[in-house]
């Protein structure tokens, strides 16, 4: 973190939104610290976009409280946020540069500064030669990248990205991930909302998983993974495994073996035993489930 400002970027407290009789968001709370990437994950229709729209003051919550950068969202605070909505587009008849400058000016950036910043960003994604093209002349993927630039052109402290990778090819997806990590290193808070949970695993520091409007998992990604690990390890070992204390079952996959531990033993104890056997150990990996698998576990448990 660059400065010593520990005000949370986002504070959401017991927020509820009801449409008709359906509780689309049901008592959801979380905080996002500055300089972290926060994953807002869950399947389609879980309430992610509704939660974000309430954060952006586009719709009002029925109850609960939301603070953005330490205060209730007001028009001035909107300038400090960059929001990439899930439903997004640009004026088709306007040039790339004009779009960037106009939308930046609505975020309070003077035109001349917006202009130089736009060119700088276009250069970063190798699209400077396209600056005078109309949006409708761009490919879909390029349009997506321009929308992303619109989101960050005013150097916001909080960046909210709703399904940012939708419609991007693998190359552009990597480019976007790179830029997101750069933003984090600049101390910005980033919220990534997606139903493709595995895609954000490598990026997120902490996650909130919601399902049918309810918060089902919340915390550090590493802690969650530890909590939901399968209690097994993958091993590639040249030599006889034999009896190992704390191991209740062994599954041989040919190339490698999965060892299932009893409730007591830790992977460290097993590793120690293997090392003491001599032989050569080519791989030792604590099996961690993907976010997808964790979600399926959690959703199944609730039913």
């Amino acid at each position: 973190m660059k400065d010593l400002d520990f005000t949370p970027a986002v504070e959401v407290k017991s927020v509820v939104k009801i449409y008709g009789k359906r509780r689309v968001v049901n008592d959801v709370s979380f905080t996002v610290a500055q300089g972290e990437i926060f994953g807002l994950i869950g399947p389609n229709g879980a309430g992610k976009t509704t939660t974000i729209r309430m954060m952006m003051d586009i719709i009002k919550p029925d109850s609960g409280e939301i603070n953005i950068l330490g205060e209730h969202l007001n028009e001035a605070a909107k300038n400090g946020i960059g929001y990439l909505p899930e439903e997004r587009g640009l004026y088709k008849k306007i040039t790339v540069l004009h779009s960037l400058v106009y939308l930046a000016s609505l975020k309070g950036i003077p035109a001349h500064r917006a202009q130089s910043r736009a060119e700088e960003l276009l250069k970063r994604i190798d699209m400077l030669p396209h600056k005078n093209k109309k949006i409708e002349e761009l490919s879909r993927g390029m349009g997506q990248l321009i929308q992303f630039l619109v989101t960050i052109i005013h150097d916001p402290r909080l960046v909210i990205l709703d399904e940012p990778f939708a419609g991007l090819d693998p190359v552009n997806t990597e480019l976007l991930k790179e830029i997101i990590l750069e933003l984090r290193s600049q101390g910005k808070a980033i919220i990534l909302s997606t139903h493709r949970m595995n895609e954000v695993e490598v990026l997120c520091d902490r996650v909130l998983m919601i399902d049918v409007g309810r918060s089902v998992l919340y915390g550090k990604l590493t802690e969650i993974k530890t909590k939901y690990r399968n209690n097994s390890v993958f091993v590639e070992f040249d030599g006889e495994l034999g009896e190992l204390a704390g191991v209740v079952d062994i599954k041989d996959y040919g190339q490698y073996t999965e060892l299932f531990l009893d409730g007591e033993a830790t992977p460290q104890q097993v590793l120690k035993q293997l090392v003491s056997r001599g032989g050569s150990l080519n791989r030792f990996e604590v099996s961690t489930p993907s976010l997808n698998e964790i979600f399926i576990q959690v959703a199944a448990k609730k039913q």
Binding site: M56, I58, E75, Y83, P85
Partner: peptide
């Protein structure tokens, strides 16, 4: 109508209020 079809509405509303 165009802004709605182009899906630019939400981007605008994240910068300005409906009244503006």
């Amino acid at each position: 109508g165009e802004e709605k079809e182009n899906r630019i509405m939400e981007i605008l509303l994240s910068s300005v209020s409906a009244r503006q």
